[in-house]
Design a protein around this nucleic acid. Structure first.
Length: 398
DNA sequence: TCTGGGGTCCTAGGACCC
DNA sequence: TCTGGGGTCCTAGGACCC
């Protein structure tokens, strides 16, 4: 299993773990006994490793089809216009073995006329080993799978919508496909009707190939150890702001406002609860960390209250536009902002090369390891992105 | 004792305009 | 005494995704 930040929740499970009944998102401590009993291995989330392996797979996929949408760290949509189902199946089988050979990652591939059908097909491919990782929604067997699939398993139909659909006697993907439009529209509005049409093979959701820059950037962490002093909270806010600003710059964007939020642990009914949040415009749209931290700390002073035990802080950047279209304030000191912007470029370059935080703002705290830093006690190595953590191969000659 | 993080899209309702 | 009609934009909250 893979655990979330602070080794708190279970966010990825092997088929064996799923079979034991440990649900997605379960708090790890609640399953301690079962974990020990079955000697389940837990790893802390290791995004440097996952991101690198993902990149290797995606690079191959990008070459495999004329149109490719990288949908998430482990999913992509490929479009093969004007090819028959049989041709596509054969291409996908080849692609699957190529990926296995060159990256070591076994993938499942689902084929369908719409993204929704392909998503259903890939679930079938994954769960039924007889298809050897490739399944097409054009197959004769597809409809019987639909008849057994609860609506909540369909991409785009979540817990709430599936409950609402039940009131109208719609329980399975097959029911939804055959339901009357007027009923679907009434209880699920636009997203539901779109999904229903997609089930019928009518394309409503296009592939998104152009990388659209994010509309907002969030950096939030639960603390490894609770925080109750202003000094520590100010360090945490500075650090999270630094992370958010780094992402902003890697997108070549600037932000115009910031929101911060600090919260106590809402699971602890025995402790006083407080949620503080406030937002404010930056002096001018920017991606310069120090400028954003300044505003963040002004906001923090307004919302921080003594006497509470804080669990988490959240920093949100919004009003994001391309850095190339920066609107300079009439009052701005252009020389200084150009200088700061060059400074950021240099800092990012050094940190990329020498390791994150090699250069950082003193307001993030000058001691290396803070008590509030998140726990990752079961971290696997960054096998492919760190010279110190390369896998070791032992050769034995006889 | 221990309970994740980062996104998108849609909708209703408010505020505003002429 | 009687108080319209047709828009747009913004935002919060909900629902969903990985």
């Amino acid at each position: 299993m893979v655990a979330s930040n602070n080794d708190g929740c279970i966010v990825a499970r092997s088929p064996e773990v799923k079979a034991l009944g440990i649900p997605m998102g379960a708090p790890a401590y609640q399953w301690k006994d079962l974990i020990r009993q079955h000697d389940i291995k837990i790893f802390s989330g290791n995004f440097a490793l996952y991101g690198d392996l993902s990149k290797r797979v995606m690079q191959i996929l990008l070459q495999a089809a004329p149109t490719v949408e990288i949908y998430s760290i482990d999913e992509a949509f490929l479009e093969f216009p004007s090819l028959t189902n049989e041709m596509i199946i054969s291409i996908c089988k080849n692609l699957r073995s190529r990926l296995l050979q060159s990256t070591g990652i076994p993938v499942s591939i689902g084929i369908g006329k719409t993204k929704t059908l392909a998503k259903i097909a890939v679930e079938i491919a994954k769960k039924n080993s007889e298809f050897q990782g490739v399944f097409s929604a054009e197959s004769d067997k597809f409809d019987s799978f639909l008849a057994h699939m609860p609506t909540s398993d369909i991409w785009g139909i979540g817990r709430k919508l599936s409950e609402r659909l039940k009131c109208f006697g719609i329980y399975t993907a097959k029911d939804l496909k055959q339901a009357q439009d007027i009923i679907i529209r009434k209880c699920t509005h636009l997203p539901g009707i779109r999904t229903t049409y997609e089930l019928r093979g009518i394309k409503c959701i296009e592939l998104q190939t152009a990388h659209s820059s994010r509309k907002g950037i969030t950096a939030s962490r639960s603390f490894g150890h609770p925080v109750s002093t202003y000094t520590e909270m100010a360090e945490a806010i500075a650090l999270y702001t630094t992370r958010a600003a780094e992402r902003l710059r890697s997108d070549k964007s600037i932000a115009s406002w910031i929101q911060i939020c600090i919260v106590t642990n809402y699971f602890r009914k025995d402790q006083k609860q407080y949620v503080g949040f406030d937002s404010g415009l930056l002096l001018q749209p920017t991606a310069v960390t120090s400028e954003i931290i300044k505003t963040a700390h002004i906001l923090l002073k307004r919302i921080f209250k003594e006497g509470f035990i804080y669990k988490k802080a959240i920093v949100n950047l919004g009003g994001i536009t391309p850095a190339s279209q920066q609107q300079i304030s009439m009052l701005a000191d252009i020389k200084t902002s150009q200088r700061l912007s060059r400074l950021m470029t240099a800092v990012d370059k050094i940190n990329r090369k020498a390791g994150r935080n090699k250069i950082h703002y003193a307001s993030c705290g000058i001691l290396k390891k803070k008590s509030w830093h998140p726990k990752s006690e079961m971290l696997s190595r960054r096998y492919t992105t760190s010279w110190q953590e390369l896998p070791v191969v032992k050769a034995i000659y006889s």
